[in-house]
């Protein structure tokens, strides 16, 4: 049972006001509870929560390097097993640490089948170093290493499909979630922790600084990602999608328009072909995960 009043991620951390990742850290620790060891990868969350000696973590926490959180977690899990201890091991890493630099370590840990839960807080770029593109950056997003320009619409590739990759490793439980749906997110974290073996939860965590919107819009924008079908909340058990959040879909531009990283799609002139391409991605998502709620015809 999740104790809603449990606060294991303390005040005083240095995240930007309205930070989606900070909210994710709070929700994860709430859902995981006290008997948890958290392993962080280098990144925004690690930096805003642990300048020596001011740690925000009220659970045992460790950070080693950018790319090795899963390997460190593997060692912790092995050690706990050897000692007969029962704490759960939870990794919290950003999308850069997950989709890109940590990929080998994640693959190794999932293949070996350690009992751990990997939470990727996905803010879709390297925020800590100044908003560079990662393998999780969406199509056409302008970042500092995929800037929109006279001959570029920004990031040229769609997001890597991490959940499918980890499901293919045989992960018993894989889920996507959003900070806009905290109860759902916490339930998924709890389920992942209580499922034996390596489990993966990828949570959409908008970054006001990196995406270019006001801090009070973080939750609203995360919700729009779901409502447009650009982010799908689903659960996979033993490699099969068992549940996906259904929505009455809105056009993608309602989401795109809210963020500076997509501004070049609307100004100085509207890029219909690009917006249509992104709409097609949302349509494909909707079909793949069957998320559309069909309204009755009048």
């Amino acid at each position: 049972m999740i104790d809603k009043n449990l606060e294991l991620f303390d005040c005083g951390h240095r995240a930007c006001g309205g930070c989606g990742a900070a909210l994710a850290a709070r929700l994860v620790t709430k859902a995981a509870g006290k008997d948890t060891i958290v392993v962080s990868a280098t990144g925004c969350m690690e930096v805003f929560s642990t300048p020596y000696p001011e740690t925000a973590w009220k659970v045992p926490w460790i950070h080693s390097l950018f790319e090795n959180a899963s390997a460190v977690a593997s060692g912790i899990e092995a050690s706990l097993k050897k000692q007969g201890r029962t704490e759960k091991v939870v990794i919290m890493a950003g999308d850069g640490a997950t989709f890109d630099i940590g990929m080998i370590c994640i693959s190794g840990a999932f293949e070996r089948g350690h009992d751990l839960t990997y939470i990727c807080y996905d803010n879709e770029a390297y925020m800590n170093t100044g908003i560079q593109r990662s393998g999780a950056t969406p199509y056409d997003a302008s970042t500092t290493t995929s800037p929109a320009g006279k001959c570029s619409f920004g990031n040229k590739r769609p997001k890597k499909d991490m959940p499918q990759i980890l499901a293919a490793h045989g992960a018993p439980y894989v889920a996507t979630a959003s900070i806009a749906y905290p109860a759902d997110f916490m339930q998924k974290v709890e389920k992942a922790i209580n499922t034996k073996g390596p489990c993966y939860v990828q949570v959409h965590a908008p970054c006001c600084t990196g995406w270019g919107f006001e801090g009070n819009q973080t939750v609203a924008i995360a919700k729009l990602a779901i409502e447009t079908g650009l982010w799908v909340n689903f659960e996979m058990v033993d490699g099969k999608v068992v549940k996906a959040k259904k929505v009455v879909r809105k056009p993608v531009e309602e989401y795109l328009k809210t963020q500076k990283r997509f501004r070049h799609l609307f100004k100085p002139k509207r890029q219909d072909a690009e917006i249509a391409a992104i709409q097609a991605m949302a349509d494909k998502n909707a079909e793949k995960y069957a998320i559309d709620i069909k309204l009755k015809k009048e």
Partner: peptide, 26 residues
């Protein structure tokens, strides 16, 4: 002992970090 057959040396020593920090001779 727990013997972790890691996927490369980088992970070998990284796993040792976790195990050592959790309190095991590694």
């Amino acid at each position: 002992a727990e013997y972790i057959t890691v996927e490369n040396e980088f992970s070998a020593l990284s796993a040792c970090i976790g195990a050592s920090a959790a309190g095991s001779r590694t």
